[in-house]
Design a protein around this nucleic acid. Structure first.
Lengths: 224, 224
DNA sequence: GCCGTCCCTAACGAATTCTTAACGCCGCAG
DNA sequence: CTGCGGCGTTAAGAATTCGTTAGGGACGGC
């Protein structure tokens, strides 16, 4: 109920926040960078994330975007930047609140309470399973027959978009603009090539797919 | 979906906020004090409240408390006071966010979007059901006897147009220009071909249709 | 430099979809 | 009764789309 994930590259801040939060009854886990934060959030359930935007490895906004692909956990952003653009970008990427440094612990705790008040439900498992393969959205991993399947970045992007909308028809335009960019709306040939590769890697019978279905003339659909 | 209630005693701020919000697609109602704000919120549905703490009649925190007695609408607090205590009190009373003046409109709008994103109730899938088949518009899917029916793009376009207007007569011109384009107003033969295909796929008795009805000489009608 | 991976591109038959034409049925008016 | 127009049905060729394969080029690691 009160699991907080603190993401900050500064060990002193991690420590100070951890002490304060634990003193207020929270269970705290920490991460020093974006990658480990995403892994940590995937491995054990988290009720709220406190995220510093200035991370060494990944841009903070990217962390939010990637987390939002599979999780709806509340995100409270800490940042030294006061600029309006930074705030708007972070909030529109999926953050729920934004505090600028320096901040008062009282305010932080109050905003945390406000966020937790809204979200009672814990995390969902970011894993989608079919008869043939298993997709772990958080870890970017696909298992088939218990073994890892290695996907290229493009293959993963396509699979992720399809799997995040189970049963829903995704048009060719949606796939192309999401994976390649808005300017590639006409290159339906890419899709045919990559769908064939995905089927070869994931479908038991690539010539007769059961989970990655074609809707001729429109797009593709993931069938769980 | 986008109803905002602006509560502020300063008429200039009400006006400025109203103009900005309306320019961004929101529907705005305003109130100059706490009592009228509570009345306004009770009288017509509101999706988010922007509340100035410095009201002439009631203390802002009290407004929040009284509103929370019966409503869970997101509340964004505006305040000139930077003190930590004010923020904590407002947030713990039930506010969801707190901005201090002066603030940027960009940031306000971004925080508004973040609040509204959370309060979007889980997707109500628009599903149309008849005795014979089920159309799921969001998933772009048609079920019959629990099994998927595969429709060609043209078939789907026709069915979608009919099903979106239940019971309403759609003229041949409407169907032709919507599905094929404005230049195909005379090709009524196409309609006969495709309506026959749809009936064969969806109607239990294609020769005696019960849901895809012909209005001789005029057009077609979907009967739920 | 060498090698492997990944992305883009073009081509080919195969499969699906669209268009078009023809035929018979029915109701209706002359 | 007969002719006519609108409708349903069918089928076949045309056009589009799909799956598949293969090769060239870019990029990074060793």
């Amino acid at each position: 109920m009160n699991n907080v994930l603190v993401v900050d590259d500064d060990a002193h801040i991690r420590s100070a926040l951890g002490i304060t939060l634990r003193a207020n009854g929270y269970t705290v886990s920490t991460a020093p960078d974006g990658e480990s934060a995403l892994v940590s959030a995937a491995q054990h359930p988290v009720n709220v994330v406190i995220l510093d935007l200035g991370l060494p490895d990944i841009d903070g906004t990217t962390v939010i975007t990637r987390l939002r692909k599979w999780s709806s956990v509340p995100i409270l952003v800490l940042s030294a930047r006061h600029g309006s653009n930074d705030k708007v970008q972070a909030l529109d990427a999926g953050a729920d609140d934004y505090i600028t440094k320096p901040f008062g612990f009282d305010e932080l705790l109050a905003r945390l309470r406000a966020l937790l008040r809204r979200s009672l439900e814990p995390d969902e498992t970011p894993v989608i399973t079919t008869g043939a393969f298993t997709v772990n959205l958080a870890l970017h991993r696909v298992l088939r027959d218990g073994k890892d399947v290695s996907l290229t970045p493009t293959e993963w992007n396509i699979l992720e978009l399809l799997v995040c909308n189970p049963g829903k028809l995704i048009t060719q335009q949606q796939l192309l603009s999401e994976v390649w960019g808005a300017a590639y709306g006409k290159e339906a040939n890419y899709l045919r090539v990559y769908m064939a590769q995905l089927r070869r890697k994931l479908e038991p019978e690539p010539g007769n797919p059961r989970h990655l279905l074609t809707e001729s003339g429109i797009g593709y659909r993931f069938q769980p």
